[in-house]
Design a protein around this nucleic acid. Sequence first.
DNA 1: AACTGCTGACTAAGCGCTTGCTTACTTGCT
DNA 2: AGCAAGTAAGCAAGCGCTTAGTCAGCAGTT
Lengths: 202, 202
Amino acid sequence: MTETTDLPRAAATRARLLDAAVSAFAERGFHATTTRDIAAAAGMSPAALYVHHQSKEELLYLISRSGHERTLALVRDGLVGSEDPVKQLVSVVRRFAIDHARGHTVARVVNYELAALSPEHFEEIRQIRQEIDHEVRRLVESGMAAGVFQVRDAGMTTLALLSLGIDIARWYRDEGTWTPEDIGDHYAELALRIVGVDLSSL
Amino acid sequence: MTETTDLPRAAATRARLLDAAVSAFAERGFHATTTRDIAAAAGMSPAALYVHHQSKEELLYLISRSGHERTLALVRDGLVGSEDPVKQLVSVVRRFAIDHARGHTVARVVNYELAALSPEHFEEIRQIRQEIDHEVRRLVESGMAAGVFQVRDAGMTTLALLSLGIDIARWYRDEGTWTPEDIGDHYAELALRIVGVDLSSL
DNA sequence: AACTGCTGACTAAGCGCTTGCTTACTTGCT
DNA sequence: AGCAAGTAAGCAAGCGCTTAGTCAGCAGTT
């Protein structure tokens, strides 16, 4: 029995198909991408896609799930390094921005193709998004409670912080002058301004 | 000859088709929308669409063009009320945010379906977007020159301001608790923080 | 070392359906 | 009577996905 161990060859092919799907979905969108496009980009016949995946939508779901789980983990990683809300905010926003710039292809699929998921898959993804929102909201509220963030509305501020980060996936181009790290640093400063931290005190 | 005067009936039908297209494109995306969807939503047969428009893509182009022109005009209107960069920024961001919230359906099509335009149409739209960017950039630079905006990078700040406004189209829901005006006020304040205006001085 | 039977990876061909759009025609207002 | 507005029917192309099969590699027998 070789069921349990993922055979290297099959795993590699699955990964190639997923990579091809990410590129195609990011560039043209889910509905404008054909299964023939994906298979051709992976160097295979259209039928091969169905050897490794149940449907075109399953590809989107797998991409979307791993992308969202990655972002959630990245946000949580940014929180554990310190107890100081200011440092946490800088760390979270910086990571979030860098990841959305460097991985803008995946991030585009993750954030702009949600409507193409099946209702069941969408619901699962929606919950991960909610957890991400929740982590950032808690951070904002802890900074407010500690008196270091001067914020009028925690919900609106949380939304604005996430919104800025997500929208990087829309506008970022590899040919641009800013590196993902430049953007991360800049956005961390913007975040501090947004939450009303006095920058001269740093 | 009745060529010059747009006959009321035809004009009304054209508008109904455009409205139906906006709703459908915003909800499902351009490629997931069929001409039958649009025609049915406008209460007509599929063929009627082609009495009034050349193609499905033409509908997207007309929506995109008028939407972009509207946004450009709105930004320019926000600039003429005052010579003070602070007041101009508040006015521009407030209008921009309110319009993207209230008109989130159009704004979604305008900002997220650009890839579905023909190359020629895309180029035309891209130029309008560039003009919008340019107006905001000039505003940021004028505030820097006047010494009232404390900004490290004019380009990044311009991008962040526009980014926040555009992303409203993605997350705004009619069922939410905030009105477009609430969002406009909040975003105007966020904009002032982003450009480093001391809020206690207002 | 040769043979046999089996399995997982992959494909050629194509099915049933939907798509954007057209054609030939009818309707109803002026 | 004439013409713009609108439709029923359908065409060619392309879609997601399936079917039936090929083929390389490998374990077990001889």
